[in-house]
Amino acid sequence: MQRAVKPLLFLVCLLPLASLVWAAVNYQLGPDPGEKLMLEIGAWAARLLIATLLVSPLRTWSGWVSLLRLRRMLGLFCFFYASVHLSLFAHFYLGWVAERLLEEIVERPYISAGFTAWLIMLPLALTSNRAMQRRLRRNWQRLHRGVYAAAVLVSLHILWQVRSDFGEALVYALIFALLLAWRLMRYRKKQSSASNAKLLDA
């Protein structure tokens, strides 16, 4: 049973992509399929980032330690969807012209935010295997805290695109804010219990 969880999660993470590709080849994405595909894939990247960040709090609340073993896969899928999202943007909006990408990054803050988030996630994906984890030791954890910065940037990326209705963007931003706030609170607690311990020692 335990052994089936990982392959199952792998298939579940592929489902959104599969259903979108299916819709695309069957002309169900509307008159602007490229944009639709890019937006949907991007939304799934954000949802997978939420799922990745949910692992720690869920483990704490449920006490189910083995949840941690799923985090790497969720994170890697998040990076995969973000990369597809970025490639679709490069294809449909920039025609793979590097200068246009540069122009977009410089001139449009929501694109700079999204692109920076992807850049932050790139080394995290590259160092996600166990060998790198062992090699980097304490630095690995430090490096992978970069995911918090990525979460902030992804929230900005979504919020900056709002035309007039903040509803959906606010939901994403709020979820990211809660996930980060939970970590901040946990960090504060650790700090204070550590200093309490010091006081007791003295």
Partner: peptide
Amino acid sequence: VDHPRWSQKTERRLPSTLFSPNR
């Protein structure tokens, strides 16, 4: 004159297809 969020130099003529943005 660019809009701050969308470049106005080019446009996608709809319908576009998955392989050609029809820009």
